[in-house]
């Protein structure tokens, strides 16, 4: 399951990434395999999304979130 498929309020644990370049940026921002994610909300127009990861809120586009595979 991809992160972009979660509904607000749902949680997931990062398993792996499908895009190497994106994964480097995401890991720098604390999105590491094994880390749990809470989807907080989607922007009013449906994109981007806001998640809570390692204790802070991160916003990312759905396209970017779709490279994160959850357990």
């Amino acid at each position: 399951m991809k992160l972009s498929q979660l509904e607000p309020g749902q949680t997931g644990i990062i398993k792996e990434f499908t895009d190497l370049e994106m994964s480097v940026k995401l890991m720098e921002m604390g999105c590491l395999p094994g880390e749990s994610i809470v989807v907080e909300r989607y922007a009013p127009l449906g994109d981007p999304m806001a998640i809570t990861v390692s204790g802070y809120q991160l916003s990312l586009r759905k396209l970017e979130a779709s490279t994160i595979i959850l357990q």
Binding site: E21, K25, M29, P48, Y56, Q57, S59
Partner: peptide
Amino acid sequence: ERGYFIMELPV
């Protein structure tokens, strides 16, 4: 540059 929108939402 590849455009990113991976952005912190500060409190």
